[in-house]
Design a protein around this nucleic acid. Sequence first.
DNA 1: GGTTAGCACTCACCACGCCCGAGTGCCAAG
DNA 2: CTTGGCACTCGGGCGTGGTGAGTGCTAACC
Lengths: 339, 339
Amino acid sequence: MLEERRLAVLKAIVQDYVATHEPVGSKGLVDRHQLGVSPATIRNDMAALEEEGYITAPHTSAGRVPTDRGYRLFVDQLSQVKPLSTAERKGIDRFLGEAADLDDVMSRTVRLLAQLTKQVAVVQYPSLSRSHVRRIEFIKVTDHKIMIILIVDSGRVEQRVVDCSVPVQEELLTDLRSRLSAAVTDQPFSSIPTRLEDLDSGFDPTGQPLVRAVIASILETVTEKLDERIVLGGTSNLAHYNEVFAMSIQPVLEALEEQVVLLRLLGEASPNQQVSVRIGHENEYVGLNATSVVTSQYGRENSPVASLGVVGPTHMDYPGTMSAVQAVAQYVSRILSAN
Amino acid sequence: MLEERRLAVLKAIVQDYVATHEPVGSKGLVDRHQLGVSPATIRNDMAALEEEGYITAPHTSAGRVPTDRGYRLFVDQLSQVKPLSTAERKGIDRFLGEAADLDDVMSRTVRLLAQLTKQVAVVQYPSLSRSHVRRIEFIKVTDHKIMIILIVDSGRVEQRVVDCSVPVQEELLTDLRSRLSAAVTDQPFSSIPTRLEDLDSGFDPTGQPLVRAVIASILETVTEKLDERIVLGGTSNLAHYNEVFAMSIQPVLEALEEQVVLLRLLGEASPNQQVSVRIGHENEYVGLNATSVVTSQYGRENSPVASLGVVGPTHMDYPGTMSAVQAVAQYVSRILSAN
DNA sequence: GGTTAGCACTCACCACGCCCGAGTGCCAAG
DNA sequence: CTTGGCACTCGGGCGTGGTGAGTGCTAACC
């Protein structure tokens, strides 16, 4: 009973604070929620909650504000993901359904996510490391240059030009293509290094330099280009918080410019299909200690290819944001597997 | 004499204001610059300059601040592009020289420009419309799907998948490849629509649906993908101005998210090799009325392939920014023509 | 005529002091 | 355990007065 009401109070505090962005007091709480008790009782509960570190008072005569810990409890136990309205689902469907190619899907997704959540959206391109090779092709650009083209199941296409010291012979190229093709087609990227290991030994000595150069180049692409691509959207939503709230957006903008930071942010997503939420100081990167990050993976069931999510203030609408992120991830998954 | 000193005063005002970001008064001016006259005289000049609209007073008892018109005069007549130090040039050279592929060049350029100018950098990928086709290739992905690959002289590679209603015959594809290749190789993108116009008539009727589909797809790529790609950098520099200066960065962030706005921004660059500067209200987009945009085109002499530049507050260091933009544009031009 | 010194004037800015009210913690009664 | 009552705290809004930077004007000067 006692414990139960305390949680209800915390929930109410979070909800009110998210709605108003102002410290919430005991009086207002009983007015706006049916708690069935008087302000004085609430005050006792609030004192207890503060004692336990779930809420804090900015200064003596102000109301209380949830702490990161308070939000965590709220997210874990007090909130339920609210389903999107059918209108919203249809809107998403229509908007994403029109996408032509992968670039289009990504850019539409990021815009959609930013618009739905009114926050900064972060979308990662399907990760090569978790994709499969669908096809490999060569194009002879000049006598000494060939372009390698890797077509990936997620729709990505990687290309790279190799310089060779000797002129490229057409037959050799054909041979190489078929052998490489056999070796890597439909194989996961992560297995490529081992699969290409001894491939050069099968060729006659005159061709080996070229073969080695090609293989080296592919390996380079595989390892290097794993620095995945990320698209951002809704950055201007940051300005909104800057004005109302007293938090500087500089560190956040800096974080968003660091591909590495973003990748780790998305990479830390929980391995299961669920939505992952990191609140305030739970984020490793200090610049994001005043923000929360909501992410989800997308791709086929049990084998996600990448992540997407949003970055927003800790006082965000968690249920709404989580449902939006989850829904968008599901839609993107569906669209990508349709190819 | 009279006119001459007034210009000197304006120049001094701009310089001081850019340095301090505070309204500058007559006393400070004579202290920091060798003008050879007394504050009272300066005051007369300032009154005249204000009359003519080059400077303005925020309020009665504050110093003067340059207007957009004042900056314009400063840029046009009073400043000279200051050359970069050799150390800076070497730094640029080293940093950009390491770039491996086009993506790398673009991302390094944008970071470099942001770092040099401490402002927001905007770099446009080489424009297809001003590029030439170097090569066209087809890859049969499945029976009904072929991938078209366009290799462009600026290093870009565009690909697109076409769905065909009928199975694709290998010979037809070879035939199509050679004809298309002959038609478009080394031709500017802008000429492609006319060159492809009647190409389908040369094929036998059974192949025509495929040919038409391919041609349509290429045309689509040519026209649609002309929505060029743009990379941004240094957005966090905006936060700096936000704090010190009283200008909201929201509209600026919004503008930066709009590809269309950015493209127009870069597209309006003056046609010659010089650096183009648009100050405050000279920018068509209202969200950027409080900023200045410094751009330059890059590419071969007399045939630029794209633009790059920076967006910053109107009280920026124009000579420094202009020289940085110009230098970077030149370096990028050089690197791209090296391929 | 252009330049300069002197002077009165204007205001943004800051510091101080004041009050107000929201919100609290505590206590004693229900 | 809950509740009404009450004293207390303290941030924020507001008027007040002082300060100083900067100006425009006028009259004298070269």
